[in-house]
Design a binder for these strands. Structure first.
Lengths: 211, 211
DNA sequence: CAATTTTTTGACCGATTGGACAAACGTTAG
DNA sequence: CTAACGTTTGTCCAATCGGTCAAAAAATTG
């Protein structure tokens, strides 16, 4: 047709775009946006640089596509936090889901962390819009639990921050965690240890007081 | 003398090196190592690029100097965690000190986070050596408290990770925290709110059980 | 087969990068 | 004054960067 970026029309275009995005996730998450080069991504994707640029016209387009996809996956666990079940069980499930994401999608976590660390220049609107609205909504849910005496009264915003921080820590600071734990304790079991600890910390720390 | 980097001999050299390090901290912490240019640092330091290179021969030398200094400051709070006072009071003080560092030295925190995120290529030996030894030592202190029934029995390593994660979160993810809290709650008071929440979470979560 | 469209690549470009270097500048000591 | 030393800068360079382009190679269509 014309010279613009192919709009995922043919099957081969969809496939190649996926290969590129997978390679870019690997490269971006370990080097950051400015620290990554198109050549690196192209090599990781098994194609030449001009060929990659045939599917994504600019380096930033790859990053943007990656970020948009990421946010959906990223917010899913919080969206599931619902008013349906027992509050403490809901919180435990949320913590567990977040920790599983840190374990299974560490690159996505690091990509996100990289972006936030540098001031979120590309996703600030999304933070102030979509993310804030979702958090506000869930804060109200948690507040309801606190009013009903199901959860200890405390600051719901900072509770959410604490859950984010502690779980994502195992993806973003993975090398530090492993270095400190050492070869013995730093193996695959560290996520189960973390899950046990975090469950105890949050469930005991948020147990409602009598009165 | 000769052409090598001046060894902080004269007073003016010491001063200029400080100016450069201060400027580099600002630039590195917001752009990462590869994302920062010598020109940026030179401009922030108010001098020309060749002049900056007269005091630090390579870009990496600046980063390395910064990192070495950083670690001393960074580990100080944990070193203070001591067996002297009441265990719960000691833990509360540690959390408070770490949160104060996140508030007062966010650039240092972000510089460190940047390095870890990218796999800690420049400070890995320090993580496996100095840091691991310090943590191992403090883990023993905490274990003693648990044996004496002063602190709930749990995993001391992950307790330390949780304190690191929750406090540094307010420096590293500052823009996200502020975006989510919004203009009303995102002001200067957020650190006091965070302090109150974290104190409650950790102190309740670690309160020893009878028996 | 030929014609057309999509995909791939080698060669290239301007801008930016980290860094080198000699010359100029400033300061101080004799 | 001059000589010596420490400091500063303009200029330059090779490497790397993101990105273009024309043309070759495949694939598709008639």
């Amino acid at each position: 047709m014309e010279g613009s970026t192919p709009r995922g029309r043919t099957r081969i275009q969809k496939e190649k775009r996926e290969v590129i995005l997978e390679a870019a996730l690997e490269v971006f998450s370990t080097n950051g946006f400015r620290g990554s080069t198109i050549d690196q991504i192209a090599e990781a994707a098994g194609m030449s640089k001009p060929n990659l640029l045939y599917y994504f016209r600019r380096k930033e387009d790859i990053h943007e596509t990656l970020m948009h996809r990421l946010l959906d996956t990223w917010l899913a666990p919080l969206k599931e936090l619902d008013n349906i079940g027992d509050p403490m069980t809901e919180l435990r499930s949320y913590i567990r889901r977040k920790l599983e994401m840190a374990r299974d999608f560490p690159r996505e976590s690091r990509l996100f962390a990289n972006e936030i660390l540098q001031g979120a220049p590309r996703i600030m609107p999304m933070l102030e819009g979509e993310l804030k609205e979702l958090v506000d909504e869930k804060v109200e849910v948690i507040r309801g639990w606190m009013r009903n005496g199901k959860v200890a009264r405390t600051d719901p915003w900072h509770l959410i921050f604490a859950i984010w921080a502690t779980t994502q820590h195992y993806a973003d600071f993975d090398v530090q965690v492993r270095a400190v734990l050492g070869p013995d304790r730093g193996g695959d079991g560290r996520f189960e240890d973390a899950a046990r600890f975090l469950e105890q910390l949050f469930l005991e720390g948020l147990k409602p007081k009598a009165g």
